[in-house]
């Protein structure tokens, strides 16, 4: 596996940040065309999610319309079998996906960084034990574990989904961060910091973490992406919170509510398409970060 040149990225970012007032990492990402498109798309999703009550013509749960109608002027994407407006659900669904992505992504990243840093920096027995758990986390089949955990849970809710996703998703990031810190900790500047009298906590926070920023960002993006997909999958399987409107639940209801047989293609196509677009925006942003971190992948 390639070791990622996170120090290099950090340096480029610092250099770029000097020229303009924006943060350096942003300048770098913005320069990459693919990444720029991704950022604009993501911004659009965030805007829609935040402004959902303004954008959506109706509430997501308002079921006072004629059931199972096709697209029309009043209902751009038709109505559900229960008589709800599909387009409004779609708009509110963006909230769920983004919240799950953000929260589960953050939690996963925090755990991955904490475990990875501890294992990599301390080494010895602590590392052996943590590495075992990391490897265990990697080999245990994720979705079955999610399903079983969700199956045992007494209440179904978004919080549960987030917890399940976090519990099952931290291992991959932790492994990468551990590998990275193992290369960073042997740098001479770490030894120099020790001889300068700095404490271990300070060394980790001021000498190591700044050099891992890009790796942590990439890890967060990956986790958020995984979380969004997992939430949609679980909701589609009917294991999500029935009270929350999400694209996964919409697909689940479309499939149960006979969208396949009644020919309501809009109800079926739309949630999948927006999900695909959201994933695309993340992928495009990741392209920018990847190309920077790994010189081999740069297109030249």
């Amino acid at each position: 596996m390639t070791s990622i040149d996170t120090e290099g990225v950090r340096v480029t970012a610092l250099a770029a940040g000097r020229v303009s007032r924006l943060p350096g990492w942003f300048v770098i990402l913005w320069r990459n065309r693919k990444c720029r498109i991704g950022l604009v798309m993501l911004a659009a999703f965030v805007a829609v999610a935040v402004l959902a009550p303004v954008v959506a013509p109706y509430g997501p749960r308002v079921d006072e319309f004629a059931a199972s109608t096709g697209p029309s002027g009043a209902h751009w994407l038709g109505t559900t079998a229960r008589g709800e407006d599909v387009f409004s659900q779609l708009v509110y669904g963006a909230r769920t996906s983004l919240v799950v992505g953000l929260v589960a992504g953050l939690l996963t990243t925090v755990i991955a960084v904490a475990v990875g840093l501890t294992a990599g920096y301390l080494q010895g027995v602590v590392d052996e034990v943590l590495s075992f758990f990391i490897n265990l986390g990697l080999v245990i089949p994720v979705l079955p574990l999610m399903i079983v955990l969700a199956g045992y849970a007494p209440v179904k809710g978004l919080g549960l989904i987030i917890i399940v996703i976090t519990v099952t998703g931290w291992a991959f990031g932790a492994r990468i961060k551990r590998a990275q810190i193992i290369t960073l900790r042997t740098r001479d500047y770490i030894t120099a910091a020790k001889f300068a009298g700095d404490s271990t906590a300070r060394i980790i926070a001021f000498e190591i973490v700044p050099n891992m920023i890009s790796l942590i960002v990439v890890g967060f993006m990956g986790s958020a992406l995984g979380a969004i997909g997992a939430e949609a999958g679980l909701a589609f399987l009917g294991l999500g919170d029935p009270q929350t409107t999400s694209w996964g639940t919409m697909l689940n209801q479309a499939s149960l509510g006979g969208a396949l047989t009644t020919g309501q293609w809009a109800w079926l196509v739309a949630p999948g398409l927006v999900l695909a677009l959201l994933i695309t925006s993340f992928t495009l942003i990741n392209f920018g970060i990847d190309a920077l971190s790994n010189p081999h992948l740069r297109e030249d």
């Binding site: 997909g229 949609a232 999958g233 589609f236 697909l251 479309a254 499939s255 396949l260 293609w265 079926l268 196509v269 949630p271 999948g272 999900l275 695909a276 677009l277 994933i279 695309t280 992928t283």
Partner: peptide, 16 residues
């Protein structure tokens, strides 16, 4: 591009 498509959605469209 294909990688961004939700897997279960593809399956639904195939049936459809």
């Amino acid at each position: 591009f294909v990688g961004t498509l939700p897997f279960f959605w593809i399956a639904l469209l195939l049936i459809f």
